[in-house]
Write a protein that binds this DNA or RNA. Structure first.
Lengths: 211, 211
DNA sequence: GAGCCAGTTGATCACTTGATCAATAAGCCC
DNA sequence: GGGCTTATTGATCAAGTGATCAACTGGCTC
C-alpha cells in the first residue's frame, strides 16, 4: 500500500520550528527564495500548510530569516576556517579561493534572489543590508589585522573591502549564467588586492600543491 | 461623471502590439520584471487582459522579450554616444562614467531581476546570455580598436572585457542596496582598466570641467 | 488512568495568476 | 452603404498563493 496521509508525528515546538527553518533553507538553496511557500515547506515535511503558518505567521518574514541564516552561516563558516590560518595574507588568499570556488553557486543564487526579491519584501531588504554590512565588517577586520601585523598596508580598508566584495559578487553573478568562467577571473581579484595592499605580484596566488 | 469602462478605441494590430511592448518595458523598469502581468499591462492601457494575451500568447516570452529590449536599447544608445568620441581612451572613459553614473539603477534592477527570474524562465535565461554576450562583444571591439590605434595594449581583450563588466555589475548591484556608494567605486574600475591596458594612472579620470 | 496543554488538522476564504473561447463591434474596402 | 476582416470583450477555468479558525488528538503531568 502507498503511505496513507497519516497524521504527522507530534514533535516539540522548538523541534518542529527548527525543522521548518531547515526545510526553508533547503528550498531556498535548490529552488530559490521565492520557492519558499507554505505548501512547499509543508509538503516536504509531510505536514499541513496550516502548521507551517502556525510556526511562521508571516511568510515574508520567513523568507528574510532564511536568507539571513544562509548568508550568515556561510560567513560564520568562513570566519572559522580563516581563523586557523597563521597570517593575514594566507587568510585573504583562502577567502578569495573560497568565495570564487566551485560549489558556491547555490549561495550566489540566493544572494541574487535576495537582491531582486528584496525590492518587494522590506524585511528581506533590511536583512540584505545587515548581511552585506557583516561581510564588509569581516573583511575590514581582516585587512586591518594584516596592517597591524605589518603584512601589508592599506589607506582606506573600508572602501577596499567594498571594492573587493563588489568584484567577487559581480564575478559570481556572471558565473551563474556563464558557469565555468569564474575560475579564470580569480586572478583579477588577486591582482587588485595585491596592488591595493602593496603586496608583490603573486603574493596571493594559490599555494602550489606540495610535490 | 467618472470615465465609464467604455470599449477601448480600436487600434491597428502592430500599433497595439507596440503599445503593449512599451507598457511592459515601463512596468519592468518601475516595478520589476515579475510585475509584468497580463492584468497589470491591460489595466495600464485600459484594455482587457484577454487582449494582451491575444497579442502575447506567452507571458514568459514577453518577459524575456522585454528584458532584451531594455538591455539592448541601453547598449544601442551607448554605442551611439561613444561612436562620436575621437579616441578609444575617451570612449572607455565615457563608458565607465555612464555605466556607473546616477540614474542607472532602473536598468541595474532589471538585470538583477533577470539573473534571478532567469532560473525559472528558460527564454529569459537565454536572452540574458545573449545580452551579456552582446555587451562583451561591444567592449572587446572597443578594446581591440584602441589597440589597433596604438592607444593602449591588452593581452586578452576577451577576458579583460568580462572582468570589467563583472566589476561594473558587482558595483551596481551593491549600489541598488546601498545607494550612493557607486560614485566612489568608479575609481576602482578606472584604475583596473588603466593598469591592464598599460595606461598611465589618471588616463581614464573624468575630464575636469573647463574653467 | 484522568485531564489538560499544545501540536496538528481540515476546511475554507479571498486573492492573484495565466489562459481560452465564443460573441461582439469597429473600421476598412469595394 | 453593405459586408467582411479583425480588434476587442466578457465570462470563465484551473491552479496556486497566504492566511484564519474551530475542532481534534497526542502525549505529558499529576
Amino acid at each position: 500500500m502507498s503511505t496513507l496521509p497519516s497524521r504527522a508525528k507530534r514533535k516539540s515546538g522548538p523541534e518542529r520550528a527548527a525543522e521548518i527553518a531547515r526545510t526553508a533553507r533547503e528550498i531556498a538553496r535548490y529552488d530559490g527564495l521565492d520557492a519558499i511557500t507554505l505548501r512547499a515547506i509543508a509538503a516536504r515535511i509531510g505536514v499541513t500548510p496550516a502548521l507551517v503558518s502556525h510556526y511562521e505567521p508571516s511568510t515574508e518574514g520567513l523568507v528574510a530569516t532564511t536568507f539571513g541564516a544562509i548568508a550568515g552561516a556561510e560567513l560564520a563558516e568562513i570566519t572559522r576556517e580563516l581563523s586557523a590560518l597563521p597570517s593575514s595574507v594566507e587568510a585573504l588568499r583562502a577567502l578569495i579561493d573560497t568565495l570564487l570556488g566551485p560549489d558556491r553557486s547555490t549561495v550566489t543564487t540566493v544572494w541574487l534572489d535576495a537582491w531582486s526579491v528584496g525590492r518587494r519584501n522590506l524585511a528581506l531588504a533590511r536583512e540584505v543590508g545587515v548581511q552585506m554590512d557583516a561581510w564588509q565588517a569581516f573583511l575590514v577586520a581582516l585587512l586591518n589585522r594584516g596592517c597591524a601585523r605589518g603584512e601589508f598596508a592599506v589607506a582606506d580598508s573600508g572602501a577596499l573591502a567594498w571594492q573587493l566584495l563588489a568584484i567577487i559578487d559581480g564575478i559570481n553573478a556572471h558565473a551563474v549564467v556563464r558557469y565555468g568562467d569564474a575560475r579564470g577571473q580569480r586572478d583579477l581579484v588577486r591582482s587588485v588586492a595585491e596592488h591595493e595592499l602593496g603586496l608583490p605580484a603573486g603574493a596571493l596566488a594559490p599555494a602550489p600543491a606540495p610535490a
